[in-house]
């Protein structure tokens, strides 16, 4: 479904972001990418929806090389590949509903979206997705009235409303406390299983990676240094990936105490 063929990326200032990446990610997989900050996790994820553009190799999504995409094709790709961010990236002054319906932008004509003319199907879909992440009662609240965990759930609803085939999550829990982090990961895992959406998540907490991932990819200095099922991973694997001893700050701790809502 997603295939990296010898993908490299050199930034204009000469830093090498990615070095000869070769990966094959299957439909419906829940992949967690781990590595220290600066290892290239974010660059790797952002290559898939072309928020950054690799400078070498081929990147296939649904058997099509996406690297030469421009304008319309690029927007089509981004409609298919949803993204969740560390800082939720909601429009703070807009309502939850308006933020979630923004997931339909790629599917909606410019004029219609500017005039706020969404079909009942779109509205129902947005509301349904808010229900799925248990935040539908906040539908008319302004985004800045919500807590961090609630905002991240809204951003999951937004990405679901986009009806993507792939969800990319760039450090989705880095700004959250442990219980809320587990809650958000649980929701991500749930939609991954229910809708069979390929999910790629960047994390730097190793316990969380082991708990939620099907497959773990370890990165260091722009290279893939580990790739295997989560069941084969233990602390020493992480020590290899990180190139140092595991410290307490690499763990999120705080088991899932809010239950699988």
């Amino acid at each position: 479904m997603i295939e990296f063929k010898d993908v490299s990326l050199v930034y204009p200032n000469g830093t090498q972001g990615l070095k000869n990446i070769n990966l094959n990610i299957k439909q419906g997989e829940f992949v967690v990418i781990v590595g220290l900050s600066g290892a290239g996790k974010s660059t790797l994820i952002r290559s898939v929806n072309r928020m950054v553009t690799p400078t070498g190799g081929e990147l296939l999504v649904d058997n099509e090389n996406i690297l030469p995409y421009k304008n319309k094709k690029l927007r089509e790709l981004r409609t298919k590949v949803g993204m969740i961010f560390q800082n939720y990236n909601l429009v703070k002054r807009s309502t939850v509903m308006k933020n979630v319906i923004a997931g339909r932008l790629g599917h909606t004509g410019t004029l219609k979206s500017v005039l706020n003319l969404y079909s009942n199907e779109d509205k129902a879909l947005a509301y349904h997705n808010l229900q799925r992440v248990n935040i539908s009662e906040k539908v008319h609240s302004r985004a800045d009235e919500l807590s961090g965990g609630q905002q991240q759930r809204v951003s999951i609803a937004r990405v679901l409303t986009q009806q993507p085939k792939v969800i990319l999550a760039d450090e989705p829990v880095a700004s959250l406390d442990p219980p809320t982090s587990h809650q958000v990961m649980t929701y991500l895992r749930k939609v991954n299983k229910e809708d069979n959406i390929t999910t790629i998540v960047n994390l730097h907490f190793i316990d969380m990676a082991m708990e939620y991932a099907d497959r773990i990819i370890g990165m260091r200095a722009g290279e893939v240094v580990f790739d295997g099922p989560a069941s084969t991973v233990n602390e020493s694997t992480f020590e290899e990936i990180y190139g140092r001893k595991i410290r307490e700050e690499d763990m999120v701790g705080g088991e899932d105490d809010e239950g699988n809502a």
């Binding site: 509205k123 879909l125 229900q131 008319h140 229910e194």
Partner: peptide, 15 residues
């Protein structure tokens, strides 16, 4: 893709 079986529209905003 998961589509809601029946269309449930969000409740009208109470002003």
């Amino acid at each position: 893709m998961a589509q809601p079986e029946t269309l449930v529209l969000p409740p009208k905003k109470k002003r």
